[in-house]
Amino acid sequence: MTRNFATLPLLLLLIVISLPLTVMYGFLILDTFTDAPPGELWPDRFTLEHWRFLFDGGEIGNVWAAAGNSLILAGSMTVIVLTVSTTGAYALSRLNLPFRRFFLAGVLVMHAFPSVTLLIGVFFVLNLTGLYNSMIGVILVKSSLMLPFGIWIMKGFYDAVPWEIEMAGVQDGASRFTVWRRLILPQVKPGLVALSVFSFLDGWGEYLLPRILAPGSDMEVLSVFLNELIAADQLGFNFNLFKSVGVFYTLPVVLLYVIFQHRLMNIFGGGTKG
């Protein structure tokens, strides 16, 4: 590494700027394990009381069930987004489709479209099809909102694979499908990994859609569960409990990020080719 400027001042500046964030995160973790006297900021005793919700659902309800539901939402959504994006993007990138340009423009417009404005329409559609208030409805809506992004990203990865590889595969006697599965798909694997992590995190963090489209469903996702926690009047505000559940909610995200951080950067490196 070559240095053409002093790194120390820059480092100091970054530390100062990110200090509030670090302090907040620090307290978030700290508060889940401690109790402070009323009105005080600094805790005076260690306790595991706030983590009791993990095995004792009596006080706030079953957090594992909620986590399971979030997992189902995020997982199904990932599967749908991956399946449709890998096949759809290949078609848009390589096949001589009628209306190909129209589809491409459509995908781009949808990508930029603010999804909140669609809520009323989506509500009507779900109501009409009987999917309102069900997890399936939420999964379908969430996946379709994610698809433009997924297709666009995957198309970028496909575009970067040289045509000659495809021609060579066909020339070697393989069908277009075999070429796609055995020759092209392995080349876009970084895109697949990044996209699946992205859509999983997106589904895991989703609050608005389950809240609005399935308010009465018995399949409550973690984000809604967390919200109920402070909305529930009978408990009063137990901030430390709220923070504990919050940390519990964040852990998978942090874990995924730590594992896949290098791969996630790929999406911006490889996916930029329109």
């Binding site: 040289p162 590889i165 060579a168 020339q171 006697g173 069908s175 392995p186």
Partner: peptide, 15 residues
């Protein structure tokens, strides 16, 4: 696929 022709491409197109 059914012509049984071998092709060597300029950039080799190895997998």
């Amino acid at each position: 696929q059914r012509r049984n022709v071998g092709v060597v491409f300029q950039n080799y197109a190895l997998y």
